[in-house]
Nucleic acid binder design. Structure first.
Lengths: 187, 187
DNA sequence: TCCAATGTTTACTGATCGGTACATCTTGTC
DNA sequence: GACAAGATGTACCGATCAGTAAACATTGGA
């Protein structure tokens, strides 16, 4: 039960769950794709739910790390970073394997509010909200909580729209909207 | 094969798919919940996919009818209707059985862009986008396509946030954002 | 009343679901 | 090299998946 082996399994499972969905991905498929045996899989993870939770934890870490780093690379001041975050999103949308937000999908497939997977998806969004609220506060917004939530709306809407609506350029429109909302929150 | 019987089945299937998800809902469960036999079910619908598509068609009709009617009840001018649409959304979020947007969930569970279910979900979003773009044009926005898309972002973001983030009042924040964006698009 | 057509039910198919019992292999220790 | 302990693979569990064949019930017209 080498710990790095476990990490490998989580990483591969994350990839397959993200690509094919949670209910649509059986443990047998994961066993084939990872090359490990079913018994080994269940030595590392008590249930499929445990594996999904581990994959979501990894995804949360990966995404937020990438997102925050990229935002800080793209702009220097909090105000500019608020706006630049939508450029970062736009880069993500253009990636080959882009399939929308894993946590929106997790929340959609496990809808009970008390379900551990639903709760973990909600926790990710809470952390993103905090990220935006902090930036809004540092930028000097009159009501950082309200602006943070509005930026979260734009981000989530942009992701959904990037998946489902071809005739839009959601990253561009969200960025423009963010600038307007920021200006309005500062004046 | 009375046609109203078929409508009954679609209506019940819609309810169960919306509550429990698509992959998580087996035909056997639907057979039990509708009280009809499995063979009858498959006389009305060639495959499960056909049933899902029929349910989505009904949902599209129901939702857009309700949404547009409610918006026109809540305000008179196009500009006010743009803003009031988020009050309508807020009413929806407060309903007992609210479980987010069925089309976001359909797009999440059937991710291939060429899949008929994915395409139908995308079509619904396209119609909503047209609704907002038309209102933006009637309201006199400088760039109705851009404002329409931004309002769509707010709407989709508000739905996702209403499902996953408890600490927000997304309908309220989206409404405030819509007003700011509208003002900016008019001046 | 008989027949044909239509709708419905029961009972089943092979495949796959999440999960496990048990045999086998590998590895560190003496 | 002997042996115990942990990791791995094989082969299976009952339940459920989407879908179907064939018997049965119902209903219309002649």
């Amino acid at each position: 039960m080498r710990p790095n082996k476990r990490d490998e399994l989580v990483s591969k499972a994350l990839e397959v769950f993200y690509r094919d969905g949670f209910h649509a991905t059986g443990m047998d498929k994961l066993v084939v794709e990872t090359g490990v045996s079913k018994t080994s899989m269940y030595k590392h993870f008590r249930t499929k739910e445990d594996l999904i939770l581990a994959a979501l934890r990894l995804r949360d870490e990966n995404f937020r790390t990438w997102f925050m780093r990229r935002v800080s690379e793209l702009a220097d001041t909090p105000a500019d970073q608020l706006v630049a975050s939508f450029d970062a999103l736009g880069e993500w949308f253009e990636e080959d394997g882009f399939r929308g937000c894993m946590f929106i999908k997790a929340g959609a497939e496990f809808q009970e509010k008390s379900h551990p997977i639903h709760l973990q998806a909600a926790e990710h969004k809470r952390l993103i909200l905090i990220f935006y609220t902090d930036l809004a506060r540092q930028a000097g917004a009159r009501n950082p909580e309200a602006l943070g939530c509005q930026l979260l709306l734009l981000k989530e809407g942009a992701i959904v729209t990037a998946v489902l609506v071809k005739s839009c350029d959601p990253a561009k429109d969200a960025k423009a909207a963010a600038r307007v909302l920021l200006d309005s929150a500062l004046s």
